[in-house]
Design a protein around this nucleic acid. Structure first.
Lengths: 77, 77
DNA sequence: GCATCATATCCCAAACTGGGATAATCCGAA
DNA sequence: TTCGGATTATCCCAGTTTGGGATATGATGC
């Protein structure tokens, strides 16, 4: 796993994304489909194997039908 | 400039960060100082030479004393 | 056990990053 | 104008990260 993805905040962020996905009853493959990406893409960012930049993050929140601001506020530190 | 950083949304995002920095009367070096990074770090992300992941983005908004949610909303597409 | 769905990992060439040094630009004062 | 300091952009390139199809591993029900 890349060095930069081990911080507690990042961990919380990932946990939040996973939790949101499951709350919507979506699989990684379904999210990947909405994003037009392979399932391994979702597996990687959820697993902290790959970073999401801001635009990708917005795309993911759209796919999850989630509010990006709420997620950000859960990351305030 | 890396391929993935050329989208119009990303461009708007960068323009927003630059605009915010200048509105605060800060130089790249001052922002870099707050971030504990070299000036070239700021020059690179502002120039689209490097991506910011979500955590880095939050750190930058903190350094700029800006509201991350407002920035996100300016990126709605 | 076995089928099926879901998630994690492999592989490795291609793409991206770090950051000190240095070049290029900007800008106000004289 | 021209000069000089302040500010921003670019260089370099080894080390790190990413893409995504294929495949392994794990979870669940029967």
């Amino acid at each position: 796993m890349p060095k930069s993805l081990r911080s507690p905040r990042h961990q919380r962020f990932l946990a939040e994304l996973i939790s949101l996905r499951k709350a919507k009853g979506l699989t990684q493959a379904q999210v990947a489909e909405k994003l037009g990406r392979p399932q391994s893409f979702v597996a990687k960012y959820e697993g902290g194997e790959r970073r999401l930049d801001l635009i990708e993050f917005l795309d993911v929140t759209t796919a999850l039908d989630a509010d990006p601001c709420k997620i950000l506020s859960s990351l305030r530190s």
